[in-house]
């Protein structure tokens, strides 16, 4: 195998997004480097989630949602005509706020769901795919003896790691996480945070969080959003220790939000 160039680099230029007439993102300019963790922070309703949903073209699934601007993934515009959003989403995986394993499926089938859904399923490789993905999501040791039990029987934290495994099984380049720990207890959260640090060796990670400590703990870069605008983006250390913008400082010191 040739050493892969670091794939999964996003460049977002002048991105605007609307829900019907309400503008939720305004002229966002942001680069997301490959194989690093970028945290998106900001108060509720600041457009964090909308922003990452523009990266895998899920924003456009909402009726009356629109957007304008350019989003480049490794130099190619993902909104160019002829780009199939379905294929894009296999390169840009997503983990959601609430763990959402498929309730009709076993743990094993949940991991394989992406491959089955998209017809890329190969029976001979299935076992190794399941093990690799579950190991990648740090869940293998806990579930290896009960792969045929339903996925919804796991604890909340395990379910979320199962969802991460399900995302990894499709072999994406980028993993978007939309407040992945907000429904979990502190111990489960800590496990997922450890996992994120492991994952960045292979994937570009973008994490939306309203938990500033989490952003400070896990991310390399942090972007602060407010009212649909990108206020500031910097290396996480410098953003939290010497913010350049007054509003960033007010937010991270807890004056609002």
């Amino acid at each position: 195998m040739n050493t892969p160039a670091a794939n999964g680099r996003f460049e977002v230029t002048d991105l605007d997004a609307w829900f019907s007439k309400k503008q939720v993102l305004k002229h966002v300019e942001l680069a997301l480097p490959a194989r690093r963790i970028t945290a998106i922070i900001g108060p509720s309703g600041c457009g964090k989630s909308t922003f990452i949903r523009c990266l895998n073209r899920m924003h456009e699934l909402v009726p009356e949602a629109r957007l304008a601007g350019r989003v480049l993934l490794d130099g190619a515009d993902i909104y160019a005509p002829g780009v199939d959003p379905v294929l894009l989403r296999r390169r840009v995986g997503m983990v959601f706020q609430k763990p959402n394993p498929f309730p009709t499926m076993s743990i094993r089938d949940n991991v394989l769901a992406g491959l089955r859904l998209t017809g890329a399923y190969d029976r001979g490789r299935a076992d190794s795919v399941v093990e690799t993905a579950l190991r990648g999501a740090a869940l293998w040791d806990e579930v290896k003896d009960r792969l045929d039990e339903p996925g919804v029987g796991l604890s909340g934290g395990q379910q979320q790691r199962l969802c991460i495994a399900r995302t990894l099984a499709v072999e994406p380049e980028v993993v978007l996480m939309d407040e992945p720990c907000s429904a979990l207890d502190p111990i489960a959260t800590a496990r997922i945070e450890d996992l994120m640090s492991e994952l960045k060796a292979r994937y570009t990670l973008v994490i939306v969080t309203h938990n500033m400590q989490q952003a400070a703990r896990v991310s390399d870069r942090t972007a602060f959003f407010l009212d649909g605008e990108l206020i500031e983006v910097a290396e996480t250390n410098s953003l939290f220790t010497s913010p350049q913008d007054r509003r960033t400082e007010d937010y991270i010191t807890g004056k609002f939000g």
Binding site: L88, R89, G93, M94, F96, N100, L117
Partner: peptide, 9 residues
């Protein structure tokens, strides 16, 4: 959403 996010049509 989960299924769409996995690249399902």
């Amino acid at each position: 959403e989960a299924a769409v996010g996995l690249g399902a049509t």
